[in-house]
Design a protein around this nucleic acid. Structure first.
Lengths: 334, 334
DNA sequence: CCGTGACGTGCAAGCGCTTGCGCCCGACGA
DNA sequence: TCGTCGGGCGCAAGCGCTTGCACGTCACGG
């Protein structure tokens, strides 16, 4: 494989000159440049980024640490991140910590060994070890989705107002007993979405009934059970909001099993959209997180952090979009 | 940032010894090893893979070249690939050529500049330039999904028999006029699926009616139009097979718009499963490609190729699974 | 005719590892 | 006592780039 020295020899110049014409880092006489470029072509020379990185201490790569299992939008997030990174000349190293804090540390370490210039991290439930590692080694990092600490760069969804919009919309349809299936305890998103739900109720003078707030643990099966429990109430809800995608599925299953029509018997709405939501029956009214924008923002934040390690930290909240379809009772389709 | 030299100094040994204890590449006295390891801990030393790669000419990374747009299973493929790569100690570099042959060459080049040890490539429609580049630079490569050439390592789905199973299943329900919505002309998968469809008809003594083979161009909108055209026929089909996921959506839309019940008025089946297929109404009967297995196989093939560049090429066809649900008329749900 | 810039290049010292060679030393057999 | 052998390590030469420093050369003004 041709090296810069081969090119230099063939062009009759020094490797320094080859380097400079390739990188445009110092003026070179037109004639010399031509000589170099044709030597490059003749030798099929391809620059070796590895050697370059060793010399410059920069790799033009960034890491993305993201658990596929815990994120149904994995692909969307990734694709947008890759595009944003590529636009800046960066290549993405992907690792999946499988939502395991120990392994999270392992993969973060591996990424750092590869000397990525920075990383975008969707933290696990207990990211302390990984974060400590990143801090110690001063790796530029931006947190994704689960916001942790205003002292860090991070980007996530505006959960509270978005959930309020969902619940509010249902209330505006005349529902007074609106249930919420909440996510995993301890997650910031769970708290924020619950608060948003309550905000909407309070704003409309409706009672916040603890009975109507059930935990779905962010999982389909748990949510299904939670809805069954809701339906068994003396005074069951007439509308239900699901706190995320997986729990919406559980909700729908329980409803179908109970033979309840949506939105006829029970109106529903959910956090997170489905890629094929238009084909569902009923068509679900949802709040759709703009994952592409989230990922893009994260990459840009990281780029900024790499460029200026001393800038103050940034937290960015992306506002999701309310997509009103049938399941809320808006158009009596379904 | 601590280097191997720092560790060596602190431990009172040479960098060679540090290297050997870290890599286990030559016997070291227990006492010396301890000295080194505690120096490693004390300095928070982390190996620099970049330098290592320069010295060894191996990076323990592999590239994955995959267009998100053209693959609804992007996430699934990726996740499985990452897991398989990680299991072998490799890190995945992800690039998205956006289905553009020129850009495909660009990203392949970028990956090679990073000196990935090999790459898994889901080729674009015109991958010649990229493939030529890979050949010239002798980059170990395995092709994914779109099989091209038995002289290369490649893995894809067994399309023909699988489509035959789909059409055959419909025929076994008594349908005699079974339409097929085919994908983009020129793709190997399109041809294979069409042939499978015909195989099934022929095997059952049914007529292969060219009128019933319409092109959906692998896209939702085109498929929708194609189905409308099918329904306008004098003797319209009583069953339809969609050649892929996107076209199935178009098919379903056209059917709904026409007010036709599935499977009551028209029975349908499709290539490719939907993640939430159970929630559709009707529940779609499909052939599901095992993307995880495909990606895992691709990574393993690549690993083998890296290990032995001179082994004969391997083509692997993964057999997809027929998932019979309601849309074919099996259980009169819908 | 000489000093002075500006311009165009080359030199060579790293960047942080790996690894072939070879040295030292203690044990052992003759 | 000496030669030999094997176990443990160190030396130092790279791997393929980048880049600070310095050296011509040439044009120009004094």
């Amino acid at each position: 494989m041709a090296t810069m020295a081969d090119v230099a020899r063939m062009a009759g110049v020094s490797t320094a000159t080859v380097s400079h014409v390739l990188n445009g880092t110092r003026p070179v006489r037109a004639r010399t440049r031509e000589l170099v470029l044709s030597a490059v072509a003749a030798t099929h020379y391809t620059p070796n980024t590895v050697a370059r990185s060793l010399a410059t201490a920069r790799t033009t790569t960034m890491g993305l640490v993201l658990s596929a299992i815990s994120n149904p939008y994995f692909g969307e997030l990734l694709s947008a991140a890759e595009t944003a990174a590529a636009a800046a000349g960066y290549t993405l190293l992907l690792v999946d910590p499988h939502e395991d804090p120990d392994y999270e540390l392992t993969v973060v370490t591996r990424l750092h060994n590869h000397r990525v210039d920075g990383m975008v991290l969707a933290p696990s439930a207990h990211p302390d070890a990984a974060l400590a590692y990143l801090d110690r080694h001063e790796v530029p990092t931006v947190l994704l989705d689960r916001l942790i600490d205003p002292e860090r760069d991070q980007v996530g969804t505006e959960n509270r107002e978005a959930t309020a919009a969902l619940t509010g919309h249902l209330a505006d349809h005349g529902h007074t007993r609106i249930a919420l299936i909440t996510g995993l305890d301890g997650l910031a998103t769970t708290v924020e979405r619950r608060d948003g739900h309550r905000d909407a109720l309070v704003a409309r003078g409706l009672r916040v009934d603890p009975e109507l707030e059930v935990s779905g643990s962010s999982a389909t099966a748990t949510a299904e059970a939670a809805v069954r429990q809701l339906l068994a109430l003396d005074d069951p809800p007439t509308a239900i909001v699901a706190g995320n995608n997986s729990m919406a599925i559980g909700m729908l299953k329980a409803l179908r099993e109970a033979g309840l029509a949506v939105p006829g018997d029970v109106a529903v709405a959910a956090f997170d959209d489905f890629p094929w939501a238009d084909l569902f029956s009923p068509r679900l009214t949802v709040v759709a997180q703009p994952f592409g924008e989230i990922a893009t923002t994260a990459v840009h934040l990281l780029l900024a952090r790499i460029a200026d390690p001393d800038a103050p930290p940034t937290t960015r909240r992306i506002v999701p979009e309310l997509r009103i379809r049938d399941s809320c009772g808006c158009s009596p389709g379904g």
